[in-house]
Write a protein that binds this DNA or RNA. Structure first.
Lengths: 135, 135
DNA sequence: CCTTATTTTAGAAATAATTTTATATTATTT
DNA sequence: AAATAATATAAAATTATTTCTAAAATAAGG
């Protein structure tokens, strides 16, 4: 299925999107699976993965590939930046104004066609700030 | 083993570092394994992973977590940005001057302690520019 | 050197995350 | 309602990476 296709509105998709929209925590596929299971106990993890992928391709949600092993999902489809805690892995939004000009600048340094940029911060979240064991 | 420990200089490490330094292509662990195998046919993939990890912790090389499933490695330990081809996955350096001020700016929008930032561009590499099938 | 302690290795097995496949179910069109 | 298409489930397969163990290499002290 390619970008722009209209997806059928199934119960699974409704609930997935609804749960994802409720939180600001950028859950992983597995976390979402646990959340959705409370409302749809028979849903499978494969369905969660497949639909998150489809909804991301459709531009309804964002798939984040910020550091760490697992991908995370963001119900806010509008471009914005993120910050990740090096200790606990928590990912927050960071509503810094978008640096549109970096793409223009960057074009002077490469032969690539630049389509987008992603700016990602890392550090320690408030909860991890005292006990900042290294990582 | 923690940051700053001196690593023994084994043949495997010498060759790994040497091969990684030779290229500007940011190879994956498996690609490096193939490269190193030509000189050390009995090296194991586990050794490659373990040593890349150790060298990255030691600050001798960088581990890149740019999009895609696999991690990539960069023999250039100095901070710099990257651009990734959406089609073929190729990752190039992008020697745009570092945007030091974004971290200062970002501090006004978050309670996190910000330690670093990473700016990553994506688009199409020269080779993929005509045939830009979606992704 | 020679002995002992420590680190590192290869190879195999285990794990984690994700993707794919085969089959069943549900929705849409005719 | 029958045929067609899309989607779901459950299980198996795949991919990337990590862990484990015994053997080999290296370092350090006498």
């Amino acid at each position: 299925m390619s970008l722009g296709t209209t997806l059928r509105v199934t119960k699974q998709r409704q609930v997935l999107l609804d749960e994802l929209s409720k939180v600001r925590t950028h859950p992983t596929a597995d976390e979402l699976y646990q959340m959705v299971r409370k409302r749809l106990p028979r849903i499978s993890l494969g369905t969660v993965y497949r639909n998150l992928e489809l909804m991301a391709e459709n531009g309804m949600i964002q798939k984040l590939e910020v550091g760490g092993t697992q991908k995370r999902f963001d119900g806010n489809a509008a471009p914005h930046y993120h910050i990740r805690c090096q200790k606990c892995g928590r990912v927050d939004d960071l509503s810094l104004p978008l640096a549109h000009d970096v793409e223009r600048q960057a074009r002077e340094y490469t032969d690539f066609t630049i389509l987008r940029h992603n700016l990602e911060f890392s550090g320690f979240c408030p909860d991890c700030q005292e006990s900042k064991g290294r990582r």
